[in-house]
Design a protein around this nucleic acid. Sequence first.
RNA 1: GGCCCCAUGGUCAAGUGGUCAAGACACCAGCCUUUCAAGCUGGAGACCCGGGUUCAAUCCCCGGUGGGGUCACCA
Length: 472
Amino acid sequence: MTVRVRFAPSPTGYMHVGNVRTALFNWLFARGQDGTFILRIEDTDQQRHVEEAVAIITDGLRWIGIDWDEGPEIEGPYGPYFQSERLDLYHEHAEALVASSDAYLCYCEREGVAADSPCRCRNRAQSDDRLEPGLAVRIVNPGGRSEFDDIVGGHLTFDNEQFGDYILVKSDGTPTYNFANVVDDHAMDVTHVIRGDDHVSNTPRQLMLYRALGYAPPRFAHLPQILGPDGARLSKRHGAASLTEYRDQGFLPEALMNYLALLGWAPPGEQEFLPAEELIAHFRLEDVRKSPAQFRLEKLTHLNAMHMQQRSSAERRDIALKCLLKEQILTPDEGEDPRTLCRVEEIIEALGNRFRYGQQIVEFGMHFFTEGVDIPEELASHFADPRVREALKMSAEAFRKADTWTDETIESIVREAAKANDLKAAPLIHALRVALSGMTAGPSLFSLVRLVGQERAHKRIHGALDQFPSAG
RNA sequence: GGCCCCAUGGUCAAGUGGUCAAGACACCAGCCUUUCAAGCUGGAGACCCGGGUUCAAUCCCCGGUGGGGUCACCA
């Protein structure tokens, strides 16, 4: 039997990275087994069909590089892939269950069931095999125990009693998660249910249903949770729990995929930098850890930097460009201008491996796009030495008059200016860096000068000299 | 609280009834360099606690503690 797995998100309007990780593990498993990866939208509770919320899911998956074999947009032999379009199926199953006395209509007050005493109103049930609008349908809890072998969690057993006669169909006629899930997973021939471990206690409930329906249950694999840096379950509260935020910050999809794969799973060997193909080749569900893992931005950033170096300079330029446009540092028109593209590419090149993710073009390169530059007061000491000041002035003039403008000519100008003032190159270089960029760290000084440009370099040097008049 | 699960450095994470208990990120130091990164070299840092089983437990068993999940007509 060929492997069929599904990722079944509900369209909430955003993609939590924990869900992305779940999708990823499903996908890695399916691809590694030559199986089928299904995308199914669980929108039974949705008042309206939220087109946009579905797009957030499909766009997100596509962006990170997860493709689906069946589901929205491409459809497939087991459709439709929206639960809201499968209501008849659930209705049929509910009727069959009622007819076979495995479920019954509930006449209780809607909120009348205390949490600590599972509802048992079946004595009031009627042996009616028709569903009635306005009445919920409950399962007849068979009691006993449910047990199963979870691929990651091992052998698990539960006392069924604790789940009561839980609801299968709400009084508005829509199915609950546990019901729709079982019906669909069976109808879609799903062989492995891989989901977050917040679903473990739903599994025994679903097992009762499989039994009542006479269906063979799939294998289950419950993935451990992803925690935030503070050890609590990753949530919006942690700032960046949404896929879109990473994309907007200029992180690379392959890096995020790589990192997410490392949360709860480790490849054999010592290499952690892995492209999708490698991930697929090595991934095994039985190697997934049971304990939750903390999401750490530093490691994602590190992996991102490594993946970034695999990208061409044009690609890196485009990533930077996107952030510059988003921050409105460049106008859309400028973003189209070939000269701008060329310039951004040069800046990225000068930044080298300092450019670890998109947004860093703003952190490190903002000043390349402004006329002037702000220099923090605490950097005044760089301009205290009169010899440095003199060398700065000489450099400024030479920069303005230079006939050729390359790193080499700039370097010789700087070194000569230092020498002429009986200085080592270092203090002049530091002062120049501060004067031109307002920062003490950055790319090669000579590239920095080149990219700032002849006129602007001259102007900024004098600006700095004016801002920090000699002490006397 | 009931039920379920988890527990190796700060974090991710290998691993074994007998090993100096891998590796990665982060951290510290040195080298390199015009700075910061990167790179190279070196360093610090861990088997939650208590009982058992055993010649021997990080590893097996029990208990405790701590953490997480779940107890809906949400998914």
